[in-house]
């Protein structure tokens, strides 16, 4: 039995990419994110003085939040909408496995996330270069922003295989926000009595650690990104992508028309 086909995945990824590109929500959000960068950097420069590092910090934060939010919103709608509009019936009536279907949709979204990050990064780096900041050392942060976007997209697609759009949105956003604040969560756990302490500590260990993928302060402030740190971030991010998509595939196999 044909469980997965590269041809099907490519065809579905291409279709998803084209659908997202033609969608007003995505094109509007992309335009808005560019406008935010174009306004935020010069204005930030005026209010914050000439500290380029703060501007870089602000720019990367804006880039990251916009990209992550957009893939979460688009990803949360993706599979429920296919099911609601019954377009999934058409695709699954062809020799396409459910694994290929979900991966095709996910890869289309990941490609869109990559485009979002790339477009914003070119504009951000151009603006920072205009302000006299050396941009080459900052490039190291881009793969990590991309990885965060991919983890968020995979979580959204994984959840949307079995949950509704609002539940997927809430769950993915909650994981993203909590994942950036695991240190605070562990700190809070330490102050609580048992069993809340243990429960919170366990939760803190099993959630995706987005702060591990957020090394912009380190990079912007000139500290080196060691191979060990980079490897840990990539391993953590890729593992979460695989885990989220695998869970989604398992759930999607159980769904019926």
């Amino acid at each position: 039995m044909n469980l997965m086909s590269a041809g099907h995945i490519m065809a579905l990824a291409h279709q998803t990419w084209r659908e997202l590109l033609r969608e007003r929500l995505v094109s509007g959000a992309m335009l808005a994110s560019v406008v935010i960068l174009l306004i935020a950097i010069p204005l930030g420069g005026l209010s914050l003085g000439q500290d380029g590092r703060i501007l870089a910090d602000l720019g990367f934060a804006s880039l990251e939040v916009t990209s992550v939010l957009l893939v979460i919103v688009a990803g949360a709608q993706m599979l429920p909408r296919e099911w609601e509009r019954r377009t999934s019936f058409l695709v699954l009536s062809k020799p396409v496995s459910r694994t290929s279907f979900l991966l095709g949709k996910a890869f289309g979204l990941l490609a869109m996330g990559t485009l979002l990050v790339a477009v914003q990064a070119v504009i951000l780096l151009f603006l920072l270069a205009l302000r006299g900041l050396e941009v080459w050392p900052l490039l190291g942060q881009l793969p990590l922003v991309l990885l965060q976007t991919m983890v968020a997209a995979s979580l959204a697609v994984g959840f949307s295989a079995f949950a509704s759009t609002p539940v997927t949105l809430l769950a993915t956003l909650a994981l993203y926000v909590t994942g950036h604040n695991l240190d605070s969560l562990q700190g809070l756990a330490a102050q609580l009595p048992w069993p809340s302490k243990t429960l919170l500590a366990v939760i803190g260990h099993i959630l995706p650690d987005f702060s591990l993928l957020d090394l912009k302060n380190r990079i912007i402030h000139g500290q080196s990104l060691t191979p060990g740190l980079a490897l840990a971030a990539v391993t953590h991010g890729v593992s979460w992508c695989v885990l989220a998509l695998s869970t989604g595939i398992l759930a999607f196999h159980r769904r019926e028309a």
């Binding site: 039995m1 044909n2 279709q15 084209r18 659908e19 033609r22 969608e23 509009r85 019954r86 377009t87 019936f89 058409l90 009536s93 062809k94 020799p95 396409v96 496995s97």
Partner: peptide, 19 residues
């Protein structure tokens, strides 16, 4: 899925990718 290589299907209401 291989069986469906030999099948053509038209759903009741044409739910296709509108874009």
């Amino acid at each position: 899925p291989d069986v469906r290589n030999r099948i053509g299907y038209l759903p009741e209401n044409p739910y296709f990718y509108q874009h």
